[in-house]
Computed example of a mutant assay.
Amino acid sequence: MEPAAPLACVIIDDNEINRFTLERAVQRHDQLTLAASFPDALEALTYFHAGGEVDVLLLDIEMPHINGLELVKLLPEPKPAVILVTTHASFAVDAFELHVLDYLVKPVNYARFCQAIARVSVPKPPVAPAPAPAISTPVAPNDLSATGTDLFVKTNGKLLRINFEDVLFIEALSTYVVLVTDKYKHIVGGTLKSMEERLPFRHFVRVHRSYIVNLHRVEALEDNLLKLGQHEVPVSRPYQDELIQRLQAL
């Protein structure tokens, strides 16, 4: 069996030292090949529209002319796997909106870099339907503490009380999850699986590998999309039958 072809990687970072560091990481990785490296997003955009090869895009956020988040919106389809690389964790919510593959904070550890690349190059096994969370799921001490519909979650270095009746859905973002309400998005460390195991509310249901929804806030289900306020959440096939049963039982 022939080894898989290396992934074409493009780097965009206006800082020469950071760009060189990423170039070295790409050259060191046996599943990557460096297709191009740019100090400017405008120059890179020209490359993309000309049909330049790219499977993985390592993208800085804070750059002149066009920042990384703006560039993601301008990328031609089909878009490459985008890994944001930045000095600030505060852009994670905006990254969540753009559905980037991963979010690395500088200085980038090579092991963490390889972990991000593995999400591109290693096929993921099929996801089996997740069982509905039990009503009395144990809660991890000093992390989540339930009283009625409230939980305390760790976000931005503090414990914040959140009324989960206000939470529309929970989405996975790399090593974080985002709790989405009508007005706010709260970033919480941990995986979607760990959050699912700690939720003591039966009406929060897994509908996709990346989403848990609050059934009390579902307005409609159409074409495998759940409408919750101004948001739409996809429903994957393994979860459809159970979801419909749960909705009809409300």
Rank of each mutant, 00 (worst) to 15 (best):
V122N: 07
V122C: 06
P123K: 07
P123W: 04
P123S: 09
K124C: 02
K124W: 06
K124V: 04
P126D: 12
P126Y: 01
V127E: 14
A128C: 00
A128N: 07
P129A: 13
A130C: 12
A132L: 03
P133M: 10
P133A: 03
P133C: 13
A134M: 07
I135P: 00
I135N: 07
I135S: 13
I135D: 06
S136H: 09
S136L: 14
S136W: 12
T137W: 03
P138V: 00
P138W: 01
V139A: 14
V139Y: 03
V139M: 11
V139F: 07
A140K: 04
A140G: 06
P141M: 10
P141K: 14
P141W: 09
P141F: 12
N142F: 00
D143K: 13
A146E: 06
A146R: 15
T147H: 10
T149L: 03
T149G: 08
T149A: 10
D150M: 15
D150P: 03
D150Y: 08
L151C: 05
L151K: 11
F152C: 13
F152T: 15
V153L: 08
V153Q: 14
V153A: 14
K154V: 04
K154C: 15
K154S: 12
K154R: 12
T155Y: 15
T155K: 11
T155N: 08
N156M: 07
G157D: 04
G157S: 10
G157K: 08
K158M: 11
L159K: 14
L159I: 08
L160E: 15
R161P: 00
R161C: 08
R161K: 15
I162L: 11
I162E: 07
I162Q: 13
I162C: 11
I162R: 05
N163F: 01
N163K: 00
N163D: 15
N163W: 09
N163R: 05
F164V: 10
F164K: 09
E165T: 04
E165A: 02
E165F: 01
D166V: 01
D166G: 08
D166R: 06
V167W: 09
V167F: 05
V167E: 05
V167I: 08
F169E: 11
F169N: 08
I170E: 06
E171V: 09
E171I: 00
E171N: 12
A172F: 03
A172Y: 02
A172T: 12
A172P: 01
A172G: 06
